[in-house]
């Protein structure tokens, strides 16, 4: 094709530049900043564990856990999203805005703990997704124990050990089968 016909075509078509509010559509599966659904999070800390740049941090407190995210540090690799066992994380479809201060876009999300059904102390929440995955095919009397806190779970297993080894009772069945 003749270059001058290309130039003429460009002249006739007008500029291809997009004015500011318009933007080029982002591709499907674009890796934007990480977003969290706090109502799905179980505070397991896997996201913080796999994060290479330290952009995701999880801090546990007495009655909630803090999910802290710094887009300024993030490399948008998507590893945290892929390892999240409950699919609480996803990546935004658009890139983060530009900013001068590295901490300007930092996000802090609180994941409230739910009370333990036995002792009432706040405990990291256990979601249905996780129960369906981790306690698959478990007897209902054991499934109830999945919601209890770490202390109660330790107490419970101690009690079971005592009843088996000291009192000679048969172990409680783990499965329906």
């Amino acid at each position: 094709m003749n270059i001058f016909s290309v130039l003429l075509k460009n002249l006739r078509m007008g500029p291809a530049t997009l004015r500011f509010p318009e933007e080029v559509p982002y591709p499907k599966g674009f890796h934007g900043p990480v977003k969290i659904h706090t109502e799905k999070c179980i505070c397991c800390g896997m996201c913080a564990y796999v994060c290479v740049s330290g952009a995701v941090r999880v801090a546990e407190h007495k009655d909630n856990c803090e999910w802290v995210y710094s887009p300024g540090l993030c490399t948008f690799c998507g590893k945290c999203v892929s390892v999240c066992p409950v699919e609480a994380l996803h990546m935004a479809a658009k890139s983060a805005p530009s900013y001068f201060n590295t901490k300007a876009l930092d996000e802090v999300h609180l994941v409230p703990y739910s009370p333990c059904p036995e002792c009432g102390r706040p405990t990291p929440p256990v979601r249905e997704v996780l129960r369906a995955k981790a306690f698959k095919g478990v007897a209902p009397n054991v499934l109830v124990k999945s919601l209890i806190c770490q202390r109660c779970r330790q107490k419970d297993s101690q009690r079971a050990l005592v009843s088996i080894q000291v009192k000679g009772e048969p172990p409680p069945s783990r499965s329906d089968k």
């Binding site: 130039l7 460009n10 002249l11 078509m13 007008g14 500029p15 291809a16 530049t17």
Partner: peptide, 9 residues
Amino acid sequence: RARMQGRIG
């Protein structure tokens, strides 16, 4: 030149 290259200029 910009217009012929599809830019605003």
